[in-house]
């Protein structure tokens, strides 16, 4: 069996990945918050891309090492040493378990991957029949809107006719469009020229994270009417 040669099959790995450009920019820390959150969500599902990500970070480390040094102030080391006394040494056993200060408590929804549970999520709101949405708060000055949509089985997902780049990651369930089937962790990045019509699969709700630049344009009359309500 060919499948026997692959890494352990469960849980199923995503099959639609961010391209090399998105991943390297995520590792470099140069993506805007919206796309970065969509990529981070995909990474929670995808060991293959986590590999790639670590390798791009290694490029960052190698570039840092070969960076031309720029002298700090004469007393910089002295001042930093003086601050060490007040700095608590982190305990390795606690790291990762303790939520950092000034970060909201984790969202309790167990279906959300860690990248999303750490975010500030608005309440579920009605968007259109069969569609509800939660705003994900990101820095608005970067021009991205980020929404978590729950789309009822068989419904069209209101994510087409947009302007600018659009980034999507399926969190739960699946949808299909002309590019194929997108299940948990699958990610898509499309630009405005693509007018696709994603449909949630018939056997269950589809939960997906969408980041769009500018306004998200919903293609139904009702959708247009409710846009002001959901703050899109």
């Amino acid at each position: 069996m060919i499948a026997a040669m692959r890494p352990p099959p469960s849980p199923p790995h995503p099959t639609h990945h961010p391209d090399v450009d998105l991943l390297s920019r995520h590792a470099a820390g140069t993506l805007a918050d919206g796309p970065a959150l969509v990529v981070a969500t995909h990474l929670d599902f995808c060991p293959i891309c986590r590999h790639q990500m670590r390798a791009w970070e290694a490029l960052g480390g190698a570039l840092l090492n070969s960076q031309r040094p720029v002298a700090l102030a004469d007393d910089a080391l002295e001042r930093t040493l003086a601050r060490l006394d007040g700095a608590q040494l982190d305990d390795a056993r606690l790291e990762g378990k303790r939520p950092p200060a000034d970060v909201p408590a984790l969202d309790p929804d167990p279906v959300l991957p860690p990248a999303l549970r750490r975010q500030r999520l608005g309440p579920w709101r009605f968007v259109a029949p069969g569609i509800r949405g939660r705003a994900v708060r990101v820095d608005p000055t970067q021009g991205y809107k980020v929404m978590l949509f729950r789309v009822a089985a068989g419904m069209a997902i209101p994510m087409h006719g947009h302007r600018g780049q659009e980034y999507t990651c399926v969190v739960d369930g699946a949808f299909s469009d002309v590019f194929g089937r997108f299940g948990s962790g699958d990610m898509a990045a499309v630009d405005a020229s693509v007018d696709h019509q994603p449909l949630a699969e018939p056997d269950g709700d589809c939960l997906c994270l969408i980041a769009v630049r500018g306004r998200l344009r919903i293609h139904s009359l009702l959708g247009r009417l409710v846009q002001p309500l959901v703050g899109l």
Partner: peptide
């Protein structure tokens, strides 16, 4: 608007480790 960084240093599954160091 202030949030935790979107690129956290999380403990990772073992599958990621050696590869990155070698890379």
């Amino acid at each position: 608007v202030a949030q935790e960084s979107l690129t956290p240093a999380e403990p990772e599954p073992a599958d990621d480790l050696l590869f990155a160091a070698e890379a």
